[in-house]
Design a protein around this nucleic acid. Sequence first.
DNA 1: AAGTTTATCAACCGCGTGCGC
DNA 2: TGCGCACGCGGTTGATAAACT
Length: 279
Amino acid sequence: MGRKPCCDKFVVKKGPWTAEEDAKLVSFILTNGHCCWRAVPKLAGLRRCGKSCRLRWTNYLRPDLKRGLLNEEEEKLVIDLHARLGNRWSKIASRLPGRTDNEIKNHWNTHIKKKLIKMGIDPITHEPLHQEPDPIIISQQMPHSPSNNNNNNCLNSENFNYSTGQESPENANNQTTSNDNLTFPRKNLTGYETQKDDDDDPLMSCIQSETFLDDAFWNFANTSRGDQDYTEFGLSSSSSSSSSEDCNSTWLLDYNDFDFDLECFNIDMSTFEVDATIN
DNA sequence: AAGTTTATCAACCGCGTGCGC
DNA sequence: TGCGCACGCGGTTGATAAACT
Protein backbone atom coordinates (compact mmCIF):
# COMPACT_ATOMS: atom_id res chain seq x y z
CA MET A 1 0.00 0.00 0.00
CA GLY A 2 1.33 3.44 0.79
CA ARG A 3 0.64 6.86 -0.50
CA LYS A 4 -0.23 7.28 -4.11
CA PRO A 5 2.63 9.05 -5.93
CA CYS A 6 1.88 12.64 -6.79
CA CYS A 7 2.84 12.00 -10.39
CA ASP A 8 3.87 9.27 -12.74
CA LYS A 9 7.50 8.70 -11.90
CA PHE A 10 8.15 6.96 -15.22
CA VAL A 11 7.00 9.97 -17.19
CA VAL A 12 8.24 12.96 -15.24
CA LYS A 13 11.76 14.24 -15.59
CA LYS A 14 13.91 14.80 -12.53
CA GLY A 15 17.09 16.62 -11.78
CA PRO A 16 18.32 20.08 -12.67
CA TRP A 17 16.11 22.30 -14.75
CA THR A 18 17.24 23.39 -18.18
CA ALA A 19 16.97 26.96 -19.43
CA GLU A 20 14.33 25.80 -21.86
CA GLU A 21 12.20 24.33 -19.09
CA ASP A 22 12.63 27.46 -17.01
CA ALA A 23 11.52 29.56 -19.94
CA LYS A 24 8.45 27.43 -20.49
CA LEU A 25 7.47 27.57 -16.86
CA VAL A 26 8.04 31.29 -16.46
CA SER A 27 6.25 32.08 -19.66
CA PHE A 28 3.30 29.95 -18.69
CA ILE A 29 2.92 31.27 -15.18
CA LEU A 30 3.35 34.88 -16.12
CA THR A 31 0.70 34.46 -18.76
CA ASN A 32 -1.74 32.20 -16.99
CA GLY A 33 -0.85 32.17 -13.34
CA HIS A 34 -0.79 28.91 -11.46
CA CYS A 35 -4.37 28.05 -10.62
CA CYS A 36 -3.42 24.43 -9.99
CA TRP A 37 0.17 23.31 -9.77
CA ARG A 38 -0.72 19.78 -10.72
CA ALA A 39 -2.02 21.02 -14.04
CA VAL A 40 0.84 23.42 -14.73
CA PRO A 41 3.37 20.97 -16.21
CA LYS A 42 0.82 19.54 -18.60
CA LEU A 43 -0.44 22.92 -19.70
CA ALA A 44 3.05 24.38 -19.93
CA GLY A 45 4.36 21.44 -21.91
CA LEU A 46 6.76 20.25 -19.26
CA ARG A 47 7.60 16.71 -18.31
CA ARG A 48 7.82 17.65 -14.67
CA CYS A 49 5.83 16.99 -11.58
CA GLY A 50 3.63 19.87 -10.43
CA LYS A 51 5.44 19.88 -7.16
CA SER A 52 8.73 20.32 -8.93
CA CYS A 53 7.31 23.20 -10.94
CA ARG A 54 6.09 24.93 -7.82
CA LEU A 55 9.44 24.52 -6.16
CA ARG A 56 11.34 25.77 -9.17
CA TRP A 57 9.08 28.79 -9.39
CA THR A 58 9.07 29.70 -5.72
CA ASN A 59 12.75 29.08 -5.13
CA TYR A 60 14.33 30.26 -8.32
CA LEU A 61 12.15 31.78 -11.01
CA ARG A 62 9.89 34.12 -9.09
CA PRO A 63 10.58 37.71 -10.14
CA ASP A 64 10.57 39.06 -6.61
CA LEU A 65 13.51 36.99 -5.47
CA LYS A 66 16.71 38.50 -4.25
CA ARG A 67 19.84 36.76 -5.35
CA GLY A 68 23.07 36.27 -3.50
CA LEU A 69 23.98 35.60 0.08
CA LEU A 70 22.01 36.98 2.97
CA ASN A 71 23.48 40.18 4.29
CA GLU A 72 24.34 40.84 7.90
CA GLU A 73 20.98 42.37 8.77
CA GLU A 74 19.11 39.52 7.17
CA GLU A 75 21.25 36.99 9.00
CA LYS A 76 20.57 38.71 12.26
CA LEU A 77 16.88 38.69 11.56
CA VAL A 78 16.96 35.01 10.67
CA ILE A 79 18.66 34.26 13.97
CA ASP A 80 16.08 36.30 15.85
CA LEU A 81 13.22 34.61 14.11
CA HIS A 82 14.73 31.17 14.50
CA ALA A 83 15.04 31.77 18.23
CA ARG A 84 11.30 32.36 18.32
CA LEU A 85 9.99 30.00 15.67
CA GLY A 86 12.49 27.20 15.44
CA ASN A 87 12.81 25.52 12.05
CA ARG A 88 9.69 27.09 10.64
CA TRP A 89 11.51 28.27 7.59
CA SER A 90 8.51 29.42 5.63
CA LYS A 91 7.42 31.67 8.49
CA ILE A 92 10.93 33.02 8.75
CA ALA A 93 11.11 33.52 5.00
CA SER A 94 7.85 35.43 5.02
CA ARG A 95 9.62 38.09 7.08
CA LEU A 96 12.51 38.43 4.66
CA PRO A 97 11.37 39.98 1.41
CA GLY A 98 12.78 38.21 -1.62
CA ARG A 99 14.10 35.24 0.30
CA THR A 100 12.79 31.70 0.14
CA ASP A 101 12.40 29.17 2.89
CA ASN A 102 14.79 26.86 1.07
CA GLU A 103 17.38 29.57 0.74
CA ILE A 104 17.15 30.50 4.39
CA LYS A 105 17.22 26.88 5.47
CA ASN A 106 20.33 26.26 3.38
CA HIS A 107 21.98 29.41 4.66
CA TRP A 108 21.17 28.46 8.20
CA ASN A 109 22.66 25.00 7.83
CA THR A 110 25.76 26.09 5.98
CA HIS A 111 26.61 29.45 7.51
CA ILE A 112 24.65 30.63 10.50
CA LYS A 113 24.74 27.36 12.39
CA LYS A 114 28.52 27.31 12.24
CA LYS A 115 28.78 30.95 13.18
CA LEU A 116 26.62 30.44 16.26
CA ILE A 117 28.58 27.39 17.32
CA LYS A 118 31.77 29.36 16.87
CA MET A 119 30.29 32.05 19.09
CA GLY A 120 29.46 29.45 21.68
CA ILE A 121 25.74 29.56 21.07
CA ASP A 122 23.67 26.46 20.61
CA PRO A 123 21.95 26.90 17.24
CA ILE A 124 18.99 24.85 18.41
CA THR A 125 18.26 26.38 21.78
CA HIS A 126 20.04 29.70 21.22
CA GLU A 127 21.51 29.29 24.66
CA PRO A 128 25.22 29.51 25.42
CA LEU A 129 26.80 26.14 24.73
CA HIS A 130 28.71 25.89 27.98
CA GLN A 131 25.54 25.87 30.06
CA GLU A 132 24.12 22.48 30.88
CA PRO A 133 20.62 22.65 29.50
CA ASP A 134 17.83 22.31 32.01
CA PRO A 135 15.12 20.24 30.34
CA ILE A 136 12.38 22.00 32.28
CA ILE A 137 13.59 25.46 31.35
CA ILE A 138 14.08 24.41 27.76
CA SER A 139 10.57 23.07 27.55
CA GLN A 140 9.34 26.41 28.84
CA GLN A 141 11.50 28.41 26.47
CA MET A 142 11.16 26.39 23.31
CA PRO A 143 9.91 28.65 20.57
CA HIS A 144 7.03 26.32 19.82
CA SER A 145 5.83 26.26 23.38
CA PRO A 146 2.48 28.05 23.57
CA SER A 147 3.42 29.37 26.98
CA ASN A 148 6.15 31.33 25.30
CA ASN A 149 4.00 33.32 22.99
CA ASN A 150 3.46 36.38 25.05
CA ASN A 151 6.28 36.34 27.48
CA ASN A 152 9.70 37.89 27.49
CA ASN A 153 11.66 34.73 27.15
CA CYS A 154 12.20 35.32 23.48
CA LEU A 155 15.64 36.55 22.62
CA ASN A 156 15.54 39.97 21.10
CA SER A 157 17.94 41.37 18.56
CA GLU A 158 18.05 44.62 20.47
CA ASN A 159 19.28 43.15 23.70
CA PHE A 160 20.97 39.95 22.69
CA ASN A 161 24.69 39.97 22.22
CA TYR A 162 25.64 37.39 19.64
CA SER A 163 29.27 37.66 20.59
CA THR A 164 28.68 36.68 24.17
CA GLY A 165 25.43 34.83 23.81
CA GLN A 166 23.97 36.91 26.63
CA GLU A 167 20.94 39.06 26.90
CA SER A 168 21.62 42.48 28.30
CA PRO A 169 19.57 42.89 31.45
CA GLU A 170 18.82 46.59 31.02
CA ASN A 171 16.77 45.88 27.93
CA ALA A 172 15.41 42.52 28.82
CA ASN A 173 12.19 43.90 30.22
CA ASN A 174 11.55 46.45 27.52
CA GLN A 175 10.66 44.24 24.68
CA THR A 176 7.03 45.00 24.24
CA THR A 177 6.36 47.98 22.10
CA SER A 178 3.26 49.66 20.91
CA ASN A 179 2.28 48.20 17.58
CA ASP A 180 -1.44 48.64 17.38
CA ASN A 181 -1.30 49.79 13.81
CA LEU A 182 1.67 47.78 12.75
CA THR A 183 1.37 45.97 9.46
CA PHE A 184 3.84 43.61 7.93
CA PRO A 185 5.10 43.18 4.43
CA ARG A 186 4.13 39.93 2.82
CA LYS A 187 5.36 38.60 -0.43
CA ASN A 188 2.97 37.61 -3.15
CA LEU A 189 2.92 37.84 -6.88
CA THR A 190 1.71 41.37 -6.92
CA GLY A 191 4.10 42.71 -4.34
CA TYR A 192 3.10 43.32 -0.76
CA GLU A 193 -0.13 43.36 1.03
CA THR A 194 -1.15 43.71 4.60
CA GLN A 195 -0.54 40.54 6.54
CA LYS A 196 -3.67 39.11 8.01
CA ASP A 197 -3.59 35.35 8.02
CA ASP A 198 -1.06 35.13 10.84
CA ASP A 199 -3.23 37.13 13.15
CA ASP A 200 -4.59 34.01 14.69
CA ASP A 201 -1.23 32.37 15.07
CA PRO A 202 -0.03 33.01 18.61
CA LEU A 203 3.55 32.56 17.53
CA MET A 204 3.24 35.17 14.88
CA SER A 205 1.52 37.44 17.36
CA CYS A 206 4.58 37.03 19.54
CA ILE A 207 6.80 38.07 16.68
CA GLN A 208 4.61 40.92 15.62
CA SER A 209 4.89 42.37 19.08
CA GLU A 210 8.63 42.77 18.69
CA THR A 211 10.32 46.03 17.94
CA PHE A 212 12.62 44.62 15.31
CA LEU A 213 9.73 43.97 13.02
CA ASP A 214 8.71 47.57 12.89
CA ASP A 215 8.69 48.99 9.37
CA ALA A 216 11.87 50.88 10.09
CA PHE A 217 13.68 47.62 10.54
CA TRP A 218 13.09 46.80 6.91
CA ASN A 219 14.91 49.83 5.66
CA PHE A 220 17.92 47.72 4.89
CA ALA A 221 15.91 45.92 2.27
CA ASN A 222 14.13 48.86 0.82
CA THR A 223 15.05 52.44 1.26
CA SER A 224 12.45 54.06 -0.96
CA ARG A 225 9.54 51.73 -1.21
CA GLY A 226 7.08 54.39 -2.14
CA ASP A 227 8.74 55.43 -5.39
CA GLN A 228 8.60 52.36 -7.54
CA ASP A 229 11.82 51.12 -6.09
CA TYR A 230 11.90 47.37 -6.51
CA THR A 231 15.10 46.64 -4.73
CA GLU A 232 13.33 44.04 -2.64
CA PHE A 233 12.52 42.25 -5.85
CA GLY A 234 16.14 42.23 -6.86
CA LEU A 235 15.33 44.92 -9.38
CA SER A 236 17.36 48.02 -9.16
CA SER A 237 15.78 51.20 -10.39
CA SER A 238 18.86 53.23 -9.69
CA SER A 239 21.70 53.72 -12.11
CA SER A 240 24.04 53.70 -9.17
CA SER A 241 23.16 50.18 -8.26
CA SER A 242 26.00 48.04 -7.06
CA SER A 243 27.35 45.15 -9.02
CA SER A 244 25.70 42.69 -6.69
CA GLU A 245 22.36 44.34 -7.28
CA ASP A 246 22.98 44.09 -10.97
CA CYS A 247 23.49 40.40 -10.57
CA ASN A 248 20.18 40.25 -8.80
CA SER A 249 18.28 41.08 -11.92
CA THR A 250 20.42 39.65 -14.65
CA TRP A 251 18.52 36.41 -14.59
CA LEU A 252 15.49 38.18 -15.95
CA LEU A 253 17.45 39.42 -18.90
CA ASP A 254 17.87 35.83 -19.94
CA TYR A 255 14.19 35.82 -20.63
CA ASN A 256 13.86 39.05 -22.49
CA ASP A 257 13.12 37.24 -25.71
CA PHE A 258 9.85 36.03 -24.35
CA ASP A 259 6.61 37.83 -24.58
CA PHE A 260 5.93 38.34 -20.93
CA ASP A 261 2.83 39.79 -19.52
CA LEU A 262 4.04 41.38 -16.33
CA GLU A 263 0.94 43.31 -15.56
CA CYS A 264 0.08 40.85 -12.87
CA PHE A 265 3.20 41.91 -10.98
CA ASN A 266 2.49 45.63 -11.07
CA ILE A 267 6.07 46.12 -12.17
CA ASP A 268 7.07 49.05 -14.27
CA MET A 269 8.99 47.49 -17.13
CA SER A 270 11.13 50.59 -17.48
CA THR A 271 12.83 49.31 -14.36
CA PHE A 272 14.20 46.45 -16.39
CA GLU A 273 15.39 48.70 -19.15
CA VAL A 274 17.49 50.68 -16.71
CA ASP A 275 19.28 47.58 -15.58
CA ALA A 276 19.65 46.31 -19.10
CA THR A 277 21.54 49.41 -20.05
CA ILE A 278 23.79 49.03 -17.05
CA ASN A 279 24.69 45.54 -18.05
C1' DA B 1 48.53 17.72 -11.54
C1' DA B 2 45.70 14.41 -9.41
C1' DG B 3 43.05 12.77 -5.80
C1' DT B 4 40.38 13.67 -1.72
C1' DT B 5 37.62 16.27 1.34
C1' DT B 6 34.51 19.89 2.37
C1' DA B 7 31.04 23.34 1.29
C1' DT B 8 27.15 24.84 -1.08
C1' DC B 9 22.61 24.82 -2.76
C1' DA B 10 19.08 23.10 -6.05
C1' DA B 11 15.95 19.62 -6.03
C1' DC B 12 13.54 15.63 -4.21
C1' DC B 13 10.71 13.12 -0.82
C1' DG B 14 7.29 12.18 2.48
C1' DC B 15 4.13 13.97 5.61
C1' DG B 16 0.73 17.27 7.57
C1' DT B 17 -2.97 20.24 6.66
C1' DG B 18 -6.87 22.37 4.52
C1' DC B 19 -10.61 22.09 1.58
C1' DG B 20 -14.28 20.34 -1.24
C1' DC B 21 -17.35 16.67 -2.04
C1' DT C 1 -18.08 12.69 9.15
C1' DG C 2 -14.93 10.57 6.29
C1' DC C 3 -12.38 10.48 2.18
C1' DG C 4 -9.41 12.01 -1.45
C1' DC C 5 -6.92 15.56 -3.60
C1' DA C 6 -3.74 19.35 -3.87
C1' DC C 7 -0.64 22.27 -1.74
C1' DG C 8 3.01 23.65 1.25
C1' DC C 9 6.47 22.60 4.58
C1' DG C 10 10.70 20.82 6.52
C1' DG C 11 14.20 17.24 6.26
C1' DT C 12 17.33 15.14 3.33
C1' DT C 13 19.97 13.97 -0.74
C1' DG C 14 23.00 14.50 -4.54
C1' DA C 15 25.60 17.09 -7.94
C1' DT C 16 28.94 20.41 -8.44
C1' DA C 17 32.49 23.68 -7.08
C1' DA C 18 36.09 24.99 -4.19
C1' DA C 19 39.66 24.06 -1.05
C1' DC C 20 43.06 21.22 0.57
C1' DT C 21 46.73 17.55 0.58
